[in-house]
Amino acid sequence: MANHYFFKIKTYLLELGFDIRHQEEATNLLVVSKPELGIEHLVIGCGEPLLILEQHLLDLPNPSCEVYQQLLQKNRDIIHGAFVLDDTGRKVIYRDTLQLEHLDRPELEAVFNSLSLLLSEFSDELIAFSKGELGVVKA
């Protein structure tokens, strides 16, 4: 059944104008980009019962409690998905999970719109974090 979801998601992505950079049908994995939304190499896994979306945003050269605090505070404003860290605590990733069973194109599109909005509104802070500077969360 996961294969059915793979093709359904792939169809939605093409309809939404995404460039499919990589696909592995055997593992139900897609890597997509849509630069005009700020989305580059978003990894999508169709692992029934969940659709998992992840995009690496930046590496933290100087992780600190203040940076982590600002990322967590910003999570509260994000409509879909959240900032997460990898096991090292240095890679900041955007991640969202959705139920595959009832997923439709507008719901998937809402995730992409949320990510695009997040990247545009929080870009100055993300750039500062990637440079090892402490940014200030906008109200």
Results as ranks from 00 to 15, higher is better:
residue 109 E to T: 09
residue 92 V to D: 03
residue 2 A to E: 15
residue 109 E to A: 14
residue 131 K to L: 14
residue 73 Q to G: 02
residue 2 A to G: 15
residue 128 A to C: 02
residue 13 L to W: 10
residue 84 V to K: 05
residue 100 L to I: 12
residue 55 Q to W: 05
residue 6 F to Q: 10
residue 72 L to E: 06
residue 17 G to N: 12
residue 30 L to H: 06
residue 20 I to H: 03
residue 66 E to D: 12
residue 132 G to Q: 01
residue 74 K to W: 07
residue 47 G to N: 11
residue 1 M to I: 06
residue 102 H to Q: 14
residue 109 E to K: 13
residue 51 L to F: 07
residue 130 S to Y: 03
residue 115 L to C: 09
residue 39 I to T: 11
residue 114 S to Y: 06
residue 75 N to P: 05
residue 35 P to T: 11
residue 48 E to K: 09
residue 137 V to I: 14
residue 58 L to E: 04
residue 63 P to N: 02
residue 53 L to W: 07
residue 38 G to I: 06
residue 139 A to G: 07
residue 54 E to N: 15
residue 17 G to P: 12
residue 29 L to Q: 14
residue 43 V to R: 13
residue 23 Q to H: 07
residue 114 S to D: 05
residue 14 L to F: 00
residue 99 Q to R: 10
residue 5 Y to D: 15
residue 137 V to E: 04
residue 69 Q to M: 05
residue 119 L to G: 02
residue 137 V to H: 01
residue 42 L to R: 04
residue 20 I to D: 04
residue 18 F to S: 08
residue 3 N to E: 12
residue 30 L to D: 05
residue 102 H to S: 14
residue 69 Q to N: 09
residue 44 I to Q: 04
residue 25 E to W: 00
residue 1 M to A: 10
residue 35 P to W: 00
residue 66 E to H: 08
residue 126 L to S: 04
residue 124 D to H: 00
residue 96 D to V: 15
residue 44 I to E: 08
